[in-house]
Design a binder for these strands. Structure first.
Lengths: 153, 153
DNA sequence: CCTAAAAATGATATGATATATCATAATGTG
DNA sequence: CACATTATGATATATCATATCATTTTTAGG
């Protein structure tokens, strides 16, 4: 069984545990994101569908499926890029801290880093003091990757 | 002279120092953002124009002006909300650390907090290690304000 | 001053992202 | 099987943004 299949199976079990179903279409969208090395827009996923399965679902369906996958915490939306990625924690089981996303503002490449809990807690405390709640400790950080940075110089 | 006028004058001097001009239209857009208590979209600024001055510039003009104001560091785009705010540092001269934006994902209200340099430096170091450069230490943090949080509960 | 270049703005078209709404198909349950 | 629920399709439209060319305004040089 491929690694991809293992992840999909795992995701399916997770859905079942929540009383929801990972349908074929939903698996296909999740697969697309898992196989991609970068974040994808909803419309890129429509194109992926056409290439991979020879059918073009209406964008609305893809948005609905993405929304479902986000509810199931299988997919994360990168608001800075208006793109979507498979949640990394579904690819490995051990706890590895809270991921932060570095998004290159130029080429849109996404990297993940993990920063210490103390840093996140400091941030969180400040946020609470201001009368807000962190929606997610997964920060999206607007960056330039070294490659694009060098090109700009 | 009103506080608003003082800020506009200050901004105008700042532009002059860079060899650029804060034209009437640009002043009007900046005023709109300064007078607003929340972030505004480009199209909201078009509406503001109609209300305040009885004319509707094409959205393209507003985008161009926003782009100019961003280059002059007078305006900041909140990518999380696809909206624009006047840079706070133009309203006061003293150094007050690096601002972070808390954006309520529900009502879109924006608050600013300042976190310590050490926290930011930790983050920055992690980012460099991953081969990226922080485009701006002004994080946009996806939150819920207490009001919306209570409503959801 | 007048004119040519440069800068700013207007006008139009279109692309990209996203949601609302109603219709149809698939699935589960008594 | 019949009905309710869930999932997906189809269509229209809202929202955010940029490309491109035309026109107006400003600025310098003669």
């Amino acid at each position: 069984m491929t690694k991809l299949q293992t992840i999909i199976d795992h995701a399916e079990q997770s859905c079942k545990a929540h009383g929801s179903k990972l349908t074929t279409k939903r698996k296909q969208v999740l697969s697309g994101l898992l196989q991609s090395d970068r974040a994808m827009s909803a419309y890129e996923l429509v194109d992926y569908f056409k290439e991979a399965y020879g059918e073009s679902p209406p964008p609305m369906s893809v948005y609905r499926i993405l929304s479902f996958l986000q509810d199931e915490q299988l997919v994360h939306k990168l608001n800075l890029a208006n793109k979507y990625i498979a949640c990394t924690h579904i690819t490995c089981d051990h706890d590895h801290g809270v991921p932060q996303f570095l998004i290159c503002g130029d080429c849109q490449r996404v990297e993940e880093i993990t920063v210490g809990k103390s840093t996140i807690n400091t941030l969180k405390r400040k946020v609470e003091e201001a009368g807000f709640h962190l929606a997610s400790p997964q920060l999206e950080i607007n960056c330039l990757c070294n490659q694009c940075n060098d090109k700009a110089a």
